[in-house]
């Protein structure tokens, strides 16, 4: 009896692993491609066993613009999300504690920014950027990405600040603490998980963002997702070794972040509206 149960459990776990691997298979195929030669990628029948080579990565980092694009991606995502988190945390505190008139309307408008198709948002912004000559500048790109990250950050952080009892604020006030002290010394440490979650998931969104970068960016501010659509052709065909190795490098940060911050995945993928652990 017990043994049969053990078998069933093993079979069940194997089944779950197989499902997970099926979903991962297309990505695994690309990662394998990154370690093949061009002939190896194009071989018919496909090679499942092969001698791995690191040539593609050497070639990748020797290309003239790749490091700059990668730097752009890193700079734009971290700077914009950094700004967004600071700004959003202050607002989240105000929304949670003072509930000024129009709070729910503002929260609603913020959420709806994220629900609108990105093209519809980018049309007017692109007109404005043309007029102000902010296109293809780091300032312009970082600011639009910060705007893009703020709604989600406010939502997620308001949820976390709501979770901290008002008693803490009152105790600190009675003991003569300034609001500044309350916000940064009393509340901030308690919502640290929220800050981490907001940071990680906004970073992933900006990291993967394509359309804003395609339309508002240019030569100076090209990010990797855009370079996927423009730089990958060579000799009339798609340069598959470049694509595979670039994609492999570019996927590492998001995959590591969901590996290490898995418990924030739910709150992160639902814009902070559904909380809980999976």
């Amino acid at each position: 009896m017990n043994r049969a149960r053990g078998w069933r459990k093993t079979a069940y776990h194997v089944l779950l692993w197989v499902i997970a691997l099926i979903f991962f298979a297309p990505i695994l195929w690309i990662i394998m491609g990154a370690f093949k030669t061009t002939d190896g990628i194009l071989a018919v029948p496909p090679q499942f066993v092969f001698v791995p080579t690191l040539d593609n990565f050497v070639d990748l980092f020797n290309r003239p613009n790749v490091l700059r694009y990668l730097g752009n991606s890193i700079l734009m995502s971290s700077a914009s999300v950094g700004i967004a988190i600071v700004v959003a945390f202050l607002a989240a505190y105000a929304f949670s504690r003072f509930k000024p008139r129009g709070t729910s309307f503002l929260m609603f408008m913020l959420l709806s920014i994220r629900m609108v198709p990105a093209v519809a948002v980018v049309i007017p912004v692109s007109l404005m950027y043309s007029a102000l000559q902010w296109k293809d500048t780091y300032f312009g790109m970082i600011m639009i990405y910060a705007m893009f990250s703020i709604p989600f950050s406010v939502w997620i952080l308001k949820g976390f600040v709501d979770g901290v009892s008002q008693r803490y604020d009152e105790t600190a006030l009675i003991n003569g603490g300034s609001r500044w002290h309350i916000i940064f010394r009393v509340i901030l440490p308690q919502v640290a998980p929220g800050l981490v979650a907001a940071f990680i998931f906004n970073l992933i969104f900006v990291w993967n963002e394509f359309l804003f970068s395609l339309i508002l960016g240019g030569r100076d501010t090209t990010s990797i997702p855009v370079s996927f659509s423009t730089d990958l052709y060579s000799d009339g065909g798609v340069d598959w070794t470049f694509t595979a190795s670039m994609a492999t490098v570019y996927m590492i940060p998001p995959i590591l972040s969901i590996l290490f911050f898995q418990k924030y995945l739910l709150v992160g993928m639902t814009f902070g509206t559904v909380r809980g652990e999976v």
Binding site: A20, N208, T243
Partner: peptide
């Protein structure tokens, strides 16, 4: 290995959509 399995399972949704399009063009 639940954490790793779930990471593999959830990876498709955090992959750059443009890159995912390319993967399937190859496939």
């Amino acid at each position: 290995g639940r954490r790793l399995a779930l990471t593999l399972l959830f990876t498709p949704m955090i992959v750059t959509p443009v890159a995912a399009g390319l993967f399937f063009r190859l496939i």
